[in-house]
Write a protein that binds this DNA or RNA. Structure first.
Lengths: 226, 226
DNA sequence: CGTATAACTAACTAACTAGTACATACATTG
DNA sequence: CAATGTATGTACTAGTTAGTTAGTTATACG
């Protein structure tokens, strides 16, 4: 007997389950906002796609904009949790960069809705991120990881000394985000699907090469010779 | 006497000027769609910001969606015209790459509305580009230019032989587009404005270095030694 | 048990929004 | 200078959309 709730053994739509109601609204809203943007998404449609009613959206979230912010908060905290799991401390700096880059690459590929939400939020000048207390002060595990790798690489004389963590993070993100975020216009214009599985390994290696070549290039200053 | 009659040469609101009416609607619509997206933009507001009425939008463009497509067409053809003016044929391949990269960089920086429209269009899965006959078959001067540079660079034994023009174009675009398109969320999270004039030269040089280092790196094949 | 409260539903509304009907002024040309 | 099509403005409408009102039902807890 696969009972879902303590007292109800019926497999019927669980009558009362605030936890599930809330998270179902969030899940559906994530899809809708990511698909159509803030202005394009419809509260009525979000409600219709859940097993509950529109009233519940207002009950739990207070309004369309707050729901959108809740969606952003969930998306960002989820991504950050994943980033925190990355462990490359045991790897040689160059290998660690390659691994971090590959993981970021995989990550963006497997979370297109997140990338879409970020694009949408940029169209809104990041207004909602700034307004959200949760998001405004969210730590960035990927950047911390990268900072440690760069420190190790510099100490070992492997990496250029003027490499800035935020810049390197930007490089990696730029490539990985572009590939997903601009997939459709790029394909319409160049007739090339940047997410074609046949080209996946090629692009994953390319961004790794790119970053490593940058990091191991001379910075024009007296560097400790290997 | 500021007469508005047919024969008045006065600088007063030109009574009849279809050319101006049309282009004014397009200019205002470009700003509105770039600012708020397709769903977020309001036909009434676009009309209010022109010197004409909503009726004229329907008269000239037929509807909101067609107006949006017209905006895209104008934006893309304008950008393509600029790209066509790039002349780097007289430069050494490496210098040509640096110049093309710098021009692309400048270009994206000075056309944020275009980048926004591209982001918006990606949110719409490039549906309108595909529908537009003008856009679907628009040549890409930047890619042609790049292809010729790469050919010259390979012939001179300066560039790796497996460098693909579309891939290289993608690299350049990724960096330049990301910097503009993701400016707001990036700044909200990392407290760094990627468009800060103080960092402009740094980033312009960085993308140039990045691409050149990639192109001059060994491709693991027997290459003509310099 | 019974009652307070949290979870929930259905129906409604006021405001907005894309698009249109209709009337008319202007300009070109025969 | 008539007449005909182009360009334009005003006022309207039908449909949509975020948000609300007024309640009902389940559950926890004394």
């Amino acid at each position: 007997m696969a009972t879902q709730t303590p007292e109800s053994p019926a497999a019927a739509p669980a009558a009362r389950d605030p936890e599930r109601t809330r998270s179902e609204i969030l899940a559906v809203a994530t899809r809708e906002f990511a698909d159509k943007g803030f202005a394009g998404a419809r509260v009525d449609e979000i409600a219709a796609k859940t097993r509950t009613t529109k009233r519940m959206i207002y009950y739990y979230f207070g309004g369309k904009e707050n729901l959108y912010i809740a969606v952003l908060e969930l998306a960002y905290t989820g991504i950050r949790a994943l980033e925190r799991q990355v462990d490359v401390e045991h790897l040689d700096p160059a290998e660690a960069i390659r691994r971090l880059t590959a993981l970021t690459f995989d990550h963006h590929e497997s979370h297109p809705d997140f990338i879409r939400l970020v694009s949408i939020e940029n169209i809104h000048y990041a207004r909602h991120i700034v307004r959200s207390e949760i998001l405004a002060g969210l730590a960035n595990p990927a950047l911390d990881t990268l900072t440690r790798i760069l420190d190790r690489g510099r100490a070992a004389g492997q990496f250029r000394r003027d490499a800035d963590p935020i810049d390197v993070h930007m490089m990696i993100s730029a490539f990985c985000v572009f590939r997903t975020a601009n997939r459709y216009t790029f394909n319409a214009i160049f007739k090339r699907d940047m997410l074609d599985p046949a080209r996946r390994d090629h692009y994953q290696a390319m961004i790794g090469d790119l970053v490593l070549e940058y990091l191991t290039a001379s910075d024009g200053r007296p560097a400790p010779t290997a």
